[in-house]
């Protein structure tokens, strides 16, 4: 009896979301004149088929996981932030500033300092909407979305202006990072330290939020501000702290992409990872533990889109469409189940 209830509450929504997503995806492929089943199988193979496929998927998991944590932590305080995209850009810019000033430094000095400045840069870009929210009550969803565009323009400015490297033959980008500024990678693949940081951060945050006094305080502040106030909890200060940590995580994702994947600062470094992180956080019900497997799934979806490009000549933006379809499928099923629950 209990087992069937778990089945209904946990497994059914996941299966139904998956089915709806596959149906929408199949429709999209059919519209483009491709046999859906063969294409789906090709996608799974290219995301998880062999060790190279896995390594390319994990490369994408790193920024997604960090950006998902950047969404989940503020959610613990009831905040909806969509600023990871901008924080990645600003963090990468801060980290690049350090690298460009220490082109001949040793890795032991440059790498920690690069991670530190990128973290601080991301934390700053996260704390700004936090301060707006805490001091003036400015809605954090709107301000983070707008700051995304501002950060993007600032990166555009430095790579077209002061940091433009003439050896790039007109291409707007900074100088190439020296070897000392490339994050360590593992297993002879492009899987980098960012993935380790992402997993460790999610686990630490899970423990902190679930078991620490601070985590309980966040829960109290989220659910009942009056009780929180009488318990002497400072909501405003915690808004800023939570937003800064969120930005810090995205900032690390930004410098990792810049250092390992791009090798220099250039526009578009954040890809769509901020959006993917937001999607993963929602699909996981804002849980630090569930975002880890969910990031792997969405990372697999992104790397299989590369295969779509190869096998079906579909442009890379098909990955964004598929993520949008996944989001819609999950929202439809989750809320349909919830509505039925209320009526029953």
């Amino acid at each position: 009896m209990n087992g069937s209830r778990v089945l209904r509450a946990e497994v059914f929504p996941i299966l139904a979301s998956a089915c709806l997503f596959l149906a929408l995806g199949a429709g999209f492929f059919l519209l483009e004149g491709h046999a859906p089943v063969a294409l789906f199988l090709e996608m799974v193979k290219s995301a998880f088929g062999d060790s190279f496929a896995w390594s390319e998927t994990l490369v994408k998991v790193a920024p997604i996981l960090l950006c998902a944590s950047a969404v989940v932590l503020p959610a613990k305080l009831g905040l909806v932030t969509v600023g990871a995209q901008g924080q990645m850009n600003f963090g990468a810019m801060a980290g690049t500033a350090l690298v460009l000033s220490m082109m001949n430094g040793s890795a032991w000095v440059v790498l920690p300092l690069m991670l530190l400045t990128a973290s601080l840069g991301g934390a700053f870009w996260g704390a700004v909407p936090g301060v707006f929210k805490a001091r003036l009550g400015v809605n954090e969803t709107i301000s983070t979305l707008m700051l995304n565009y501002l950060a993007l323009q600032l990166v555009d400015y430095v790579v077209h202006g002061p940091w433009k490297d003439p050896s790039n033959l007109g291409w707007p980008a900074s100088a190439n990072f020296p070897d000392a500024a490339i994050l360590p990678t593992f297993f002879g693949s492009r899987v980098h330290l960012g993935l380790v940081i992402g997993v460790v951060a999610a686990l630490i945050l899970h423990v902190l939020v679930t078991y620490s006094r601070w985590g309980i305080a966040l829960k109290v502040m989220r659910s009942n501000q009056r009780v929180a106030l009488s318990a002497g909890l400072n909501y405003e200060r915690n808004v800023i702290i939570v937003m800064a940590i969120s930005g810090l995580l995205a900032g690390i994702a930004g410098i990792a992409e810049t250092s390992v994947m791009q090798g220099r600062l250039q526009a578009g470094l954040a890809g769509g990872y901020g959006w993917s992180g937001f999607l993963v956080a929602w699909l996981s019900g804002q849980s630090f533990l569930r975002i880890i497997p969910m990031s792997i799934l969405v990372g697999g979806l992104l790397s299989s889109a590369d295969a779509l490009q190869l096998f079906a000549q579909l442009p890379s933006s098909s990955a964004i469409i598929l993520q949008g379809m996944l989001f819609v499928s999950a929202l439809v099923v989750m809320n349909w189940v919830k509505l039925r629950g209320y009526h029953a």
């Binding site: 969803t141 442009p315 098909s318 949008g324 989001f327 929202l331 349909w336």
Partner: peptide, 22 residues
């Protein structure tokens, strides 16, 4: 379906970006 309005709006945003790029 009484879905969360912020999440739904972001879903429309992502779909719109993807469809138009594609």
């Amino acid at each position: 379906l009484k879905a969360n309005q912020i999440a739904s709006g972001i879903a429309v945003l992502i779909l719109g970006m993807g469809l138009t790029s594609f």
